[in-house]
C-alpha cells in the first residue's frame, strides 16, 4: 500500500511539481480561456447579425439577398470540420498573421457564429407572432418591434442552448494545438511526452476542463433562473 502511494506521489510530482510544470498547465489554461472568451463574444455578435439577416424578408414576404448569404454561411461552416477551418485560417487565409491566438479567436468565433445564428433564429421564431403583430399595429416599425418586444423575449428562449454552445466552444478550443498554440490540452500532452507518463497530465487536464465548465454551468443556471423569475411576477 505504502509503495502504491509513493508511486502515485512520484507521478504527481513529476506531472505537476518538478520543473514548475504546474505553470505550463496554467499558461495553457490561460490560452484556452482567452480563445474561448473572445471567440464566444465574436460568435454571439456574428450569430445575432446572421440570424437577423436570415430572417429578413422583402415587402412581398420573399427572402432577401442577405437571407441567402446568411444561409450559405451557415451551410458552409456547419458542413466542414472545425479543425479544417482552423487549419485553413492559419495556413491559407491569414498566412501572414503570426498571432496564433488571434487566428484561433477568428476561426472559432466564425465557427461558433453559425451555430449561434441558428439558436438565435429559433429563439426569435419561438416568440408568438401576435407580439409582432401587436407592435406593428401600434405603428412601431419592424426594427422597433424587434428591439423592444421580440428580442427581449427571445433572450429567455435562447439562454439554455447558448450556454450549451459556450460549453461546446470551450472544449472545441482543444484543437488549437493544430496551429502551434499551447492551450491546456497541448500543454498536458507535451508534459506527458516529456515524462513518459500520460496518466497524471491528461487526467489532470480533464479535471481542469471539468471544473471550469461546472462553474460556467452554475453561473448560467443562476442567470437563467433570474430571467425566469421575471416571467412569474
Amino acid at each position: 500500500m505504502q509503495a502504491w502511494f509513493e508511486k502515485v506521489g512520484k507521478m504527481f510530482e513529476m506531472a505537476f511539481i518538478s520543473g514548475d510544470r504546474w505553470k505550463l498547465y496554467l499558461d495553457g489554461l490561460g490560452v484556452t480561456l482567452q480563445i474561448a472568451f473572445f471567440a464566444a463574444i465574436l460568435g454571439m455578435v456574428i450569430g445575432t447579425v446572421v440570424a437577423l439577416m436570415k430572417l429578413s424578408t422583402r415587402k412581398n414576404g420573399k427572402k432577401t439577398v442577405w437571407s441567402y448569404l446568411a444561409g450559405a454561411y451557415i451551410d458552409i461552416i456547419r458542413g466542414t470540420p472545425s479543425v479544417l477551418q482552423l487549419l485553413i485560417m492559419w495556413f491559407i487565409i491569414l498566412k501572414s498573421c503570426k498571432n496564433g491566438i488571434l487566428v484561433a479567436v477568428l476561426s472559432f468565433g466564425i465557427n461558433s457564429g453559425a451555430y449561434v445564428a441558428e439558436i438565435v433564429r429559433a429563439g426569435i421564431l419561438a416568440v408568438d407572432k401576435g407580439q409582432t403583430e401587436a407592435g406593428r399595429s401600434l405603428g412601431l416599425s419592424k426594427a422597433k418591434t424587434m428591439i423592444y418586444i421580440v428580442i427581449p423575449q427571445a433572450v429567455k428562449n435562447v439562454l439554455p442552448p447558448i450556454g450549451n454552445e459556450f460549453i461546446v466552444l470551450l472544449k472545441e478550443t482543444a484543437i488549437a494545438g493544430y496551429v502551434s498554440l499551447t492551450d491546456l490540452t497541448r500543454a498536458a500532452n507535451q508534459i506527458s511526452s516529456r515524462t513518459y507518463e500520460a496518466f497524471m497530465p491528461l487526467i489532470g487536464a480533464a479535471v481542469i476542463y471539468f471544473v471550469i465548465i461546472k462553474i460556467l454551468t452554475i453561473l448560467l443556471g443562476k442567470l437563467e433562473r433570474r430571467l425566469r423569475k421575471s416571467d412569474n411576477r
Partner: peptide, 20 residues
C-alpha cells in the same frame, strides 16, 4: 407605420407584450 398610429387594433389573443 404612420397610418397605423391612427388605427387601433384589438386581437383575439390580446397580444399584450409579455416582457413589459
Amino acid at each position: 407605420d404612420k397610418v397605423r398610429t391612427h388605427m387601433g387594433m384589438v386581437f383575439q389573443n390580446f397580444n399584450l407584450f409579455n416582457n413589459l
